[in-house]
């Protein structure tokens, strides 16, 4: 399905990013796993990819740094030859109620979750335009559509990603590049494991399919959007949330 393609996955070492990296490799893609800090996890993910028989390497980069992103893209191009698929997945949370949210919490989340998507997209646009094909898949969140108390920064960034997706899609369509977003709901990862039992219970009540999502549920959607099967889809947001948000 993706044989011969090269994918670059930010935040690729853990959680949803890890599942996406492995799923793309299983579909035949070579994968560059971009990670910010957890080298061990990145190496473990790279090992898992190599077991599928595909090429993989871990590359450290803070997606909010223009210099680091450009260096990472250069390294991917040197190692793998080109970039066919970019998955902008890297994300952090600094949750707090508006009244208590520090400016620094706001900036950090916007820098990584929104500016990071911009910087990575900008950096791959040139090689993708030259090859006249490409797939960019941005990981947003359903809270970017519905809102969520205590996450003004995260929600603003994730809603921003949806707007960025639509604009970039219109800009790059004539060059054979599609840009879509995937909006996960409540997925079981390290990021959501911090939530208290009462919050989990409350959230479960809002999910029609009555279970939490798995990182693999999200990875399947990304794999589809990265494939030729999705060639006529661009600028869209695909919710993978068990039916939580239906707007």
């Amino acid at each position: 399905m993706l044989t011969g393609k090269v994918a670059m996955v930010t935040g690729g070492s853990r959680g949803i990013g890890r599942a996406v990296s492995v799923a793309l490799a299983e579909a035949g893609a070579d994968v560059a796993v971009i990670y910010a800090g957890n080298r061990e996890a990145a190496e473990e993910t790279v090992e898992a990819i190599r077991k599928t028989g595909r090429k993989a390497s871990e590359i450290r980069a803070d997606v909010s740094s223009s210099d680091e992103v450009q260096a990472a893209v250069k390294e991917v191009l040197e190692t793998f030859g080109n970039i066919d698929i970019l998955v902008n997945n890297a994300g952090i949370t600094r949750d707090n109620l508006m009244l208590r949210m520090k400016e620094e919490d706001w900036d950090k989340v916007i820098d990584t979750n929104l500016k990071g998507v911009f910087l990575c997209t900008k950096a791959v646009t040139r090689p993708m335009m030259k090859q006249r094909s490409g797939r960019i898949i941005n990981i947003s969140s359903v809270v970017g559509i519905s809102g969520n108390p205590g996450q003004a920064n995260y929600v603003a960034a994730k809603a921003g990603v949806i707007g960025l997706t639509k604009s970039t899609a219109k800009e790059l369509a004539s060059r054979g590049i599609t840009v879509n977003a995937v909006a996960p709901g409540f997925i079981e990862t390290d990021m959501t494991s911090k939530l208290g039992e009462d919050v989990r219970k409350d959230l479960l009540g809002q999910i029609p399919l009555a279970r939490l999502g798995k990182p693999e549920d999200v990875a399947e959607a990304v794999k589809f959007l990265a494939s030729d099967a999705a060639a006529y889809i661009t600028g869209q947001t695909l919710n993978v949330d068990g039916g939580m948000v239906t707007a």
Partner: peptide, 9 residues
């Protein structure tokens, strides 16, 4: 502007 960008590449 996109045509120009493309031409530059």
């Amino acid at each position: 502007s996109l045509d120009v960008m493309d031409m530059i590449l």
